[in-house]
Design a protein around this nucleic acid. Structure first.
Length: 479
RNA sequence: CUGGGUGUGGCGCAGCUGGUAGCGCGCUACCUUGGGGUGGUAGAGGCCGCAAGUUCAAGUCUUGUCACUCAGACCA
């Protein structure tokens, strides 16, 4: 249809070129603009509003669980960063350094935080004395800098926004519980609020965070079959505590090292939302984080009573959701396309015909079906549709994941699948780094995670070396 | 970091064998139209990424450089 075609001609089709489709969307939905520094993006009001919604929801959940927000400096002296060996080795290659202050050369250079473990450790050492001081449950919302070679809006930028929780506990058991608890907070947020199914699981040693004892992850699968690590939760054991000498005096009057966790999600989530739910008309936003949940488009708005009726609807709906009315001079068709591009979950059209029959037209972003809806009880109906939309997105994404999840019990099959398909490949693994490297080399896949909820062995031997298998691993290509 | 692509009004592009810049969209004003990007009239807006060089003359040729972008390698 000519009109259909016209509505989508502004963005590249995702089938044609997924990468270009993605950049088209981030630009044309007004999420970001590029800045004059490579890899540093300007997050525009509409994009930032999505982040604010993510922040508000997660921040509330963190606080319900007893976490407090703090703010740490953005600079880390080199000597402080160097205290934990594995950690510094992991991050050193992508750290940005400050060497000058005004016109003076600094005696010790400062790194711009790539993550704040060391800063938290320095502070915790000063404030933790007794078991009564534990646990310490701190979180901060901030930006961090990692000097990436290749950058993409939201997915990999040199500066990005995130939250990083850093907690200190008396025992290893408590630290492990906190690590899993926060992983579950993320998993729930992804699945219920963002409509994104995730795999909860553990990273292999190769993929885990520098300095961590164990790294857990929620992995999401994008529409094109590539995986995206959505959030991470690390258990540090007492490794950093030993490096920074963070001890407390326990009830039994002996000094003990603290056990530590950290966990984070970043603006990368927004990239994940785009690549999971978006379509050829543009962005599709899950209701919970959509800056505009309902857009009201008046039709024949110059006619008597139309704008007034639209305004009245807006007033009513404002009490239950985020609603906008577009009374600009643009034609209705223009507005339809515009708000589809921006991923607004629900559109309501109201014109003279509707007013006469006390109804309006309601169209959901995910299925585009026009429904004639009575104005009575509209608030409840809209809330139900917002909820149904997120659930429908979840179902659709789950179906995509199911379609793209494969199983291999021998190397040849795994290679064949990896070459032909895009998605997860379930396969047994012996636990050796060599096999991970070999699979990368031979099939160009990396281990995404050892999933918690899918460990029923599919064979006894490692898919790569044939030795006794330890875990079922999801393999794939990742962003 | 390696390899490709691209830099020309805000955006997308044209500009051939060198001769002093053009189209579409958008923007501004007014009118018109309005249930899937409505049509019209009149306007505003560019030292062609940057720097050297060749030439009487460079958007166009040469060299260098910077940026963006895609695909790898590396990472949230």
């Amino acid at each position: 249809m000519a009109n259909e075609k016209k509505a989508v001609e502004q963005i590249t089709s995702m089938e044609e070129d997924f990468a270009k489709w993605y950049t088209d969307i981030v630009k044309k939905a007004d999420l970001i603009d590029y800045s004059s520094v490579k890899g540093c993006m300007i997050i525009r009001p509409y994009g930032y509003a999505i982040w604010e919604n993510i922040q508000r929801i997660l921040d509330g959940r963190f606080k319900e669980l007893g976490h407090e927000n703090v703010y740490m400096p953005m600079f880390i002296p080199e000597s402080l960063l160097n205290k934990e060996k594995e950690h510094v080795e992991g991050f050193a290659p992508e750290v940005a350094w400050i060497t000058m202050g005004g016109s003076e050369r600094l005696t010790e250079r400062l790194c711009v935080r790539p993550t704040s473990e060391t800063l938290f450790c320095e502070h915790y050492k000063n404030i933790i004395r007794s078991y009564r001081d534990l646990p310490k449950l701190y979180n901060q919302w901030c930006s961090v800098v990692r000097w990436e070679k290749t950058t993409r809006p939201f997915l990999r930028s040199r500066e990005f926004l995130w939250q990083e929780g850093h907690t200190m506990h008396a025992t290893a058991k408590e630290a492990e519980e906190e690590t899993i608890r926060m992983l579950n907070v993320y998993a729930t947020f992804f699945e219920q609020d963002l409509g994104m199914p995730v795999l909860r699981g553990q990273k292999t040693d190769k993929e885990k965070f520098a300095g961590a004892k164990a790294t857990y992850t929620v992995e999401a699968l994008m529409h094109d079959g590539k995986a995206l690590q959505g959030g991470t939760s690390h258990n540090f054991g007492d490794g950093f505590a030993r490096a920074f000498d963070i001890q407390y005096l326990d009830k039994d009057n002996t000094l003990k090292y603290c056990h530590q966790t950290s966990w984070g999600v970043s603006t990368r989530i927004i990239g994940g939302i785009i690549m999971t739910h978006g379509d050829d008309r543009g962005l599709v936003l899950p209701s919970a984080v959509a800056p505009i949940q309902v857009v009201i488009v008046p039709v024949q708005q110059h006619k008597e009573g139309v704008l007034e009726a639209a305004e009245a609807l807006k007033d009513r709906l404002s009490s239950v959701c985020r609603v906008k009315i577009d009374d600009s001079d643009n034609s209705p068709g223009w507005k339809f396309a515009e708000y589809e591009m921006k991923g607004v979950p629900v559109r309501i059209e109201i014109g003279p015909r509707d007013i006469e029959s006390r109804q309006c037209v309601l169209v959901r972003r995910d299925n585009h079906e026009k429904q004639f809806v009575s104005l009575d009880g509209l608030e409840e109906r809209v809330l139900a549709e917002l909820d149904a939309l997120t659930k429908a997105l979840y179902e659709k994404a789950s179906a995509n994941r199911a379609k793209r999840t494969f199983t291999a019990t021998d190397l040849a099959t795994l290679q064949e699948i990896a070459a032909k398909e895009s998605g997860y490949i379930r396969a047994m693994w012996c636990g050796e780094l060599d096999c991970e490297l070999e699979l990368k080399e031979k099939a160009d896949v990396s281990s995404r995670c050892i999933p918690f909820d899918d460990q029923e062995p599919i064979s006894d031997t490692c898919v790569c070396c044939g030795k006794k298998a330890k875990h079922l691993v999801y393999w794939g290509k990742a962003y």
